[in-house]
Structure formats: C-alpha cells, structure tokens
Design a protein around this nucleic acid. Structure first.
Lengths: 158, 158
DNA sequence: AAAACTGTATCTATTATAATTACACTAACC
DNA sequence: GGTTAGTGTAATTATAATAGATACAGTTTT
C-alpha cells in the first residue's frame, strides 16, 4: 500500500489527539509523521477535498478533523487517497490480443470484487479505534523501555 | 498488485490450455503473455520452487502444470510470488520514535488481518475457473468483433 | 504592511520495475 | 560425442514511480 495512505492515517490520528483548540500546522504534523511539510500539505489538501479535515490558511492556520474520530473509517481514507492496492498491474496494457483481453477482464473483475471486500473490512476500522490501540501498545512499550519519555501533546504550537 | 502476479496467472492459464502433451517453452509463453522470455523463466522458476509447475531443461524442455487446474488457487500463486499487495509502505522506517512505532504496529497488524481475508478470497478462485470465465468472455467478444480469429492452441511448438 | 500560514507546481534524487543481454548448464537427438 | 534447443540465473541498462526539496503565489491575522 502506498505511503500516502499511511501518512494520511497517521496525520488523522495526530489531529484526533489534538484537543488544544488550536489548529495543527503542516510543519508540526510533518515532524510527528517524519516527512516533509509540503508532502503533508498535499495529502491534507486531498483529505480536505474529501471533507475529512478542515483547513485554514493564514496566520494561526492549519488543520483539524471535520468529523468525530469514531466516524472516520479507514475506508473513507482509502477512497480519498485512491490507493487501489489491489489494482492489477498489466505491463502489456496496449495489446489488442483478444485472449489477453479476456484474461485481463476476468481478473480485473475478480480483483475489483476483492477490493470491495477490503473496503468492507476497512469500514470497520476507525481513527478512534486505531488511536486507542496505539495508546495501549505505547503503554506496554514504555514499560519495557522506560527511558522513552512519552510525548507531550501540549507542545504542538510551540 | 505487482505485474509478476498477473504474468504468473496468465502463464498458468496458458499451461492449463495446453493439452498437446508437449511442454510449453518460455519463448512460446512469452509471446502469449506479451513479455520477455527471461522474465517468464524467472517467474516460472519461482512457481516450480513452489511446486505449481514442472520444468524440464534441454531440448524439448519447457513447462507444464504440476496440479490439476482446479487445484491451483490464486492464493497459492499469490503466496508463491509473495505479492504482499496490502503491505503498508512506511517511508520513515528507520525512525525510533515510540509514537510512530506504536501507530505502525497497530496498522501493520490491521493490514496483516486484511491480507488473511484477501487470501481466503483468493482461495476460492482457481486457474480452472478463470480459464472458463475467460473463454466465455472471449466468445462474447468474438460475436461482437468476428474479425478476431480465435487463437490456435496447436501452434505452441511450431 | 508584516508575519505565519496553506496550496500547488516544479525540479531533482532515489528507488522500484521491466527489458535486455549474456552465458553456464542440461537433456535429447543424430 | 557433438550439436541443438531448451532452462536457470546473474548482470546491465532503461524507464517509471516515488519521495524529497524548493519556490512562490495566495490568504488570513495581527
């Protein structure tokens, strides 16, 4: 699965954690997510067009969720980013051989159905559920490695 | 999905159609599948290691199926080629940020489960079923475009 | 008007993918 | 036993996809 998807989900999780009332800037997000702010802006722009986040330009601008984290399913994110993880790759796409075309049609059909099943599965995962799970995992990790200081959510708009 | 998978499936369908008793050479297969013979050999070599096909070197060598087409599921092919279509891509994989690690663990887990579901679905598709469907599609296509002469399976070892 | 943001395009670097070439090895055939 | 027709596999090159980086126009707030 393409990395725009993982970045999008990770950003949404960060936004869900932000209860400060302030917007989250692309610069701050990019540090959390370990990528570049221009890339974050591009992805967030796509999410805005799909009404998953609200953006604001200008001073004190930035991003926040447009829905409750319990309402944001991974299926919504998946469709917004148009990952098409199961789309088949045909290196010989310009061929007009009727045999190849028929095989291709049948397989594309089969994997289209697989994609529907995948989206049904992703429908059941929400930003909220992932966030809770990740918190739990982090707690158990910090028991094992207590030197890892837990992050400070208040440091968003330094 | 990576194109090795589609090539592998297409080759297996061709092998299933070959009832001539002769082996199918990489050269002939590569023409059917519209790629290069070295690539076909590489992929078929992987399928041989997974016991889906039998290969033979030397004169009159080539490939044939090792199982009945009804027994070769796409799940077998998928695992053989190790497509990992749903594997998440983390561009920041060397980071040791505990927050990122926990998000990553949770998401990798979720998509590992999605991959299991996908394999269950692929378990229900066989080379035989695809072959039959493709034949039907080709028949209906040839009604629409009768100038497309049906292929001649006897021309394999010309 | 200046400052702090987003939005977006473009360029460059890196990586992944596919095509191509080459050749060692193997088995059948004469 | 040598020639031929095939696989197995590695190495090289070409092309495409991905990610990083930079730049700057546009938008708000102060």
């Amino acid at each position: 699965m393409n990395s725009e998807f993982t970045i999008a989900v990770h950003c949404l999780i960060e936004l869900a954690k932000n209860t400060s009332g302030h917007l989250y800037s692309s610069e701050a997000l990019s540090q959390k997510v370990h990528t570049h702010s221009a890339r974050v802006r591009k992805i967030m722009s796509t999410l805005r067009k799909n009404e998953l986040v609200v953006t604001k330009e200008g001073i004190r601008g930035g991003y926040r969720l447009n829905l409750d984290p319990r309402e944001i399913t991974l299926a919504l994110v998946y469709r917004a980013i148009a990952c098409e993880a199961l789309k088949l790759n045909w290196c010989s796409c310009s061929e007009s051989d009727p045999e190849l075309i028929s095989v291709r049609m049948v397989m594309d059909q089969a994997f289209g159905e697989a994609e529907v099943l995948l989206e049904e599965y992703l429908e059941r995962l929400t930003i909220d559920s992932l966030l809770r799970q990740a918190e739990k995992v982090r707690e158990s990790l910090s028991c094992l490695c207590p030197e890892n200081i837990p992050s400070d959510p208040q440091s968003i708009d330094k």
